[in-house]
Design a protein around this nucleic acid. Structure first.
Lengths: 223, 223
DNA sequence: GCGCAAACTTGCGTGCACGCACTTTTTCTG
DNA sequence: CAGAAAAAGTGCGTGCACGCAAGTTTGCGC
């Protein structure tokens, strides 16, 4: 009993493998072309051609032009975060497990990923697409959180996962803001620290909620 | 109390009023046409024509076709939520203030709003646009929360506001799911209750985080 | 009053997302 | 093993988002 998702495919058919191969080819082509020429000099038609599929098929895999490029960097980060949380000992504090897993998965930047990130930060459209990837963290994170706090708190798990995703997004926004607008709501500006610092700072306020959810399942008190 | 200003009203210039009038005309036209014919039978060109502007100008006001229709229902709900929170007595628990303000603003459905909501639930694109409006709650809510917990917790306020927005979104998703997909993450299905119940249930897990943030600013407060 | 500058509107062109119908490929079943 | 069924790929057409470069209105200083 595992959920149909982005985890792995033992051997569910020859068909699925070709599908993943096509997706990977599109990711690769999109990133390569974006790095070679500018990001604005790459059309969907070019990416599709480089990957050997029709432009129409491209949209069967990615909803937008930027998604493919960003996808090459983010890859299956959601699944890795969820796996990292699940890998932590069951006795550890859930809030810490989640925080460390997130920081861990966002700090190990590969060589090509670093170059791609540099490209992403320059273009607004790519930055937005990159920030939108945080939304996909929700579902897998919901699963692992639900395993910790029990099925009774399924609803809670979903809210907590979504809150984590929102916090990560805020951290990323604050991180890649070299000359961005700082007037948004309260006009308050927090100096951009390192990414791990931003992530920890953003996730810290949620810790009490995790503690409470976790405490509810471990019946230390009765009556 | 018609101004949509987030914080101040810089100048009630004649120009700004025409702008708001155009926006209102577009909202009105979009909703009316969508109700009259089906939602799919309304093009941007039609809305623009009914409002007396060019199709190009339409996009200067709304980023997508669905936004205008949804905007007619949501109006300035974000501002009203923020105002409702600010209106609560300073001594009250912040978590309760936010929860009640949200429930309050999402339950007073006008007559035409009810009809529009019925329309929204039928079309997936409109539902998505409706859910996306929760994102706009963040900024104003951040401001009022920051006022309560102090500028020191500005970062915290932003995270909490985003978490609230995410929770509201989840509540709405669960509410308008007549025959939707229930397989998302854990395959767990929670029977759809009333909207106020959904909202309270979604916001409840965040209460400890609010308490902790509030406690950090008010030295020792028992309540 | 008188322009001037900024803001708003608009026509035009380009690329893109996506529905629909059809073809091709893979998988299931008798 | 063959044919059916399901699923993925593809061509085509439509409407839309948005940059750009005018044209037009509003507001302000002189």
């Amino acid at each position: 009993m595992w959920h149909a998702g982005t985890v792995t495919t033992p051997s569910p058919g020859l068909r699925e493998r070709k599908k993943q191969a096509t997706r990977e080819a599109l990711r690769e082509a999109a990133l390569r072309l974006a790095v070679e020429r500018g990001a604005d000099q790459v059309r969907v038609e070019d990416i599709a051609e480089a990957a050997g599929v029709s432009p129409r098929t491209y949209n069967n895999y990615f909803a937008s032009r930027e998604q493919a490029i960003v996808s090459a960097v983010t890859a299956d980060r959601e699944a890795r975060i969820a796996a990292a949380v699940a890998a932590r000992p069951a006795g550890a504090r859930l809030a810490d497990a989640v925080t460390e897993a997130v920081v861990e998965q966002y700090t190990n930047a590969g060589e090509r990923e670093q170059e791609a990130l540099l490209l992403i930060t320059t273009r607004t459209a790519l930055r937005d697409a990159f920030l939108d990837t945080t939304a996909s963290i929700g579902p897998p994170l919901t699963t692992v959180i639900a395993e910790r706090i029990g099925d009774a708190g399924a609803h809670t798990a979903r809210v907590l996962a979504a809150s984590v995703a929102a916090a990560i997004r805020i951290a990323l926004e604050g991180w890649l803001r070299p000359a961005g607008s700082a007037e948004a709501a309260g006009g308050l500006v927090v100096p951009s620290g390192s990414l791990p610092d931003q992530l920890r700072a953003a996730l810290a306020p949620l810790a009490p909620a995790f503690d409470a959810a976790e405490r509810r399942t471990h019946p230390i008190k009765r009556g």
